[in-house]
Design a protein around this nucleic acid. Sequence first.
DNA 1: ATATCTGCAAAGACTTTGCATGAGA
DNA 2: TCTCATGCAAAGTCTTTGCAGATAT
Lengths: 157, 157
Amino acid sequence: MPKRFGVGPPWWHGRFRECGYRLTTPRESILDVLSKTSKHLSAEDIYLEVHNIYPTIGLTTIYRTLGLLVQMGFVSKFDFGDGRARYELSMGPKSVGHHHHLVCTSCGRVIDYTDFIEEEKELLSKTEKELSKRYNFKISNHLIQFYGLCERCKNKK
Amino acid sequence: MPKRFGVGPPWWHGRFRECGYRLTTPRESILDVLSKTSKHLSAEDIYLEVHNIYPTIGLTTIYRTLGLLVQMGFVSKFDFGDGRARYELSMGPKSVGHHHHLVCTSCGRVIDYTDFIEEEKELLSKTEKELSKRYNFKISNHLIQFYGLCERCKNKK
DNA sequence: ATATCTGCAAAGACTTTGCATGAGA
DNA sequence: TCTCATGCAAAGTCTTTGCAGATAT
């Protein structure tokens, strides 16, 4: 059953308090930016967005908050090979849901795909279970990316 | 049929010339270091190894050569989240073969696993084929990593 | 009231670049 | 011989840290 979004406090308020963290303007606005996009934002992208509304919030806080959100599991951090990390909401009502990435090694373009996810999911959960057992690892996350040339770059060569 | 390793020029000589690149001491020694380990070496790790034998070779050359080897497909570059890239031979006779990584998010330990690879391989090649078609992408590589807590770190908490 | 959070500036870490010298084919 | 490759030093980028002042609860 879906919750009533848009009324009452946002879904994440509880989680913050549970963990002993405070609810602050920077934290809320960063989550807000992330929850309103499906793009893969860098720390600076987020900084610029947030800065439009709250010009006093600094880049340091963006980094610190992102670290916190990653650690709490709200946000996933990705490396697409261009030297800067990208961040995406990994849970919550507006989340795009389970997806993986297709990364162009020439222009850096990133495509989200959700095709064949069901089958992947099945294999993944099976693999996670088996790996956990065999290596005594508590698996909490996974990363799957395909690399290659996108349509445009492929045709250039 | 296996080639006769250890006699004649190393397997990669031809590939270098084909691509118009020169065979140099730094390039050979870097490939040598990579082909004699199954660890995940950083640029500096490689530098230190190479430096033992050829003290004149600089870190810059390590980075430049690694870039070249990655681009040629000899070497794969990984990011385990500790801020420095790791490199592994991705092909060649001494290669450990197809494997993926299990990364401890607490201590950074990395475990290579090859279990369940057959099934994965099958799904991966199918997925690659389908994604190539749908997104008109020329896929050349993939990355799969699981994150979690290793035995030691799990028990600490 | 007080422990947490933030902003600024500065530092830190890894990686890349410019340029003159050196080396492979 | 003539490009391509290398080493050194310096610069570039992203990210983290120290600390005093501000803020949430």
